[in-house]
Design a protein around this nucleic acid. Structure first.
Lengths: 234, 234
DNA sequence: TCCGCGATTATGTATAGACATTATCGCGAA
DNA sequence: TTCGCGATAATGTCTATACATAATCGCGGA
């Protein structure tokens, strides 16, 4: 039996992540959750306070608690779904699957993901194109143990990122942002000069402790940047 | 009278930030803090739990609570203070003031900050050096209307970022991360090749709606990256 | 109709106590 | 001396309650 605290939290997170509760949706009052889980208000309060501190929900006295509008961390998230972003901006978007294979991971990848070396992962490389201009090159590892249905997915309609996001909402993510110079191959793929600065975003995501996917996305430095809004923790 | 919670927190943070409690230092037990502040254990516990969730301290049952070892997990937030980071990591740090002037801002800067064009700002350029290797070049605008005492500050002891952080804690910040190629001047300053990829972090901060400062920090791409951990979960 | 003010309500902070969990310490036995 | 195990001490979780604070609602008066 997990701790109640964690269960309440998981439930709320799942509802938000799955989109069942979209931004602006009113979350049950503390006394309602109290009744639902049969616990004291302090327990509910601590969960909601923490979620609020993490920016997932917004609380206001008397008015109640609602799912937060995507504002701060969302910038990092948004960029991951090209299809959605392009649709919102009214831009023609397409993607090209450049590579697809199932391979055991090497020692370095095992270290990064916390999985045993040799674990089989689906490896996919995708080029994202908008208005005929390459916008990003994506190399992705997908954990077949967590997402077995990926094995038979063709990624014909949706790129891996979009496809995954709909199936496996993440609960935990680690990001690394680097600046690197494009080598010849990358330059060709992205239609930039060899040696041009690129922004590389690495993201590893977990769901309830289980590793889901690792994405390494390379953006041409002259066409992209990341934007984020942060507030100090209360 | 501020809330007790906040007071305890401020006290502990101050001791850690000032270096009085260095990494590994054992923090008073909950029952000791209880006695010191004359409050219940829950109050102390919530403060310490929050600090632990923020990575400032490490807690272990029976063993107690200690100041956390500096990790790179919070680079996005901590990178703002070189002096503090260097002190925590035990690295020799110094900085060089390369430029200092008071100038009216141009139209572009006015747009970014939301201030009227022509507003007078203090412009400072700083080079951050650790162990004799340049680590970052910082260009900063400081709003003299919000921080008038900056006008007479020499920045002899502390670099502008550290100095500001102690005087004007920000409540709201906007970050932009880019990858750019170093031009000749920048390459010389950072001891890298011309054209090498650099990570550029732009941060604009506000305090209660009033613009405080804009920093544009350029890191050599081969020596730095940003790491962030985002989770709905703490 | 519109405005102001008090009642209501949801969250914010804090208390005192209880039991669970876990790592360490120290004692006693092999 | 070393190993194992129980006592101990610290944090982790939770309860039931109390009062504070802030924002909204709604009623009554102008």
């Amino acid at each position: 039996m997990k701790h109640l605290h964690q269960r309440i939290r998981d439930d709320i997170e799942a509802k938000i992540m799955s989109g069942e509760w979209s931004p602006g949706h009113r979350i049950p009052f503390e006394h309602e959750l109290m009744a639902e889980y049969g616990c004291s208000r302090m327990t509910v309060n601590k969960v909601l306070s923490t979620l609020a501190a993490n920016g997932l929900i917004t609380r206001r006295r008397r008015a109640g608690t609602v799912v937060a509008e995507p504002s701060n961390q969302q910038a990092v998230l948004q960029i991951q779904d090209f299809a959605l972003e392009a649709a919102r901006a009214g831009i023609e978007y397409r993607f090209k699957l450049l590579h697809r294979s199932v391979e055991p991971i090497d020692a370095a990848a095992a270290q990064r993901t916390g999985l045993p070396a040799g674990t089989k992962m689906l490896c996919v490389s995708t080029l994202h194109v908008m208005d005929d201009v390459p916008q990003a090159f994506e190399q992705r590892l997908i954990n077949l143990a967590t997402v077995p249905e990926a094995d038979t997915e063709s990624f014909k309609d949706d790129p891996p990122g979009t496809w995954l996001l709909r199936r496996v909402p993440w609960t935990d993510a680690e990001h690394i942002v680097r600046a690197v110079s494009a080598d010849g191959t990358m330059a060709k793929r992205l239609h930039i000069e060899t040696g041009a600065a690129c922004l590389v975003l690495e993201r590893r995501t977990w769901q309830a402790g289980a590793f889901v996917t690792e994405a390494r996305i390379t953006y041409p430095g002259d066409r992209h940047h990341l934007v984020g809004r942060f507030s100090p923790v209360a």
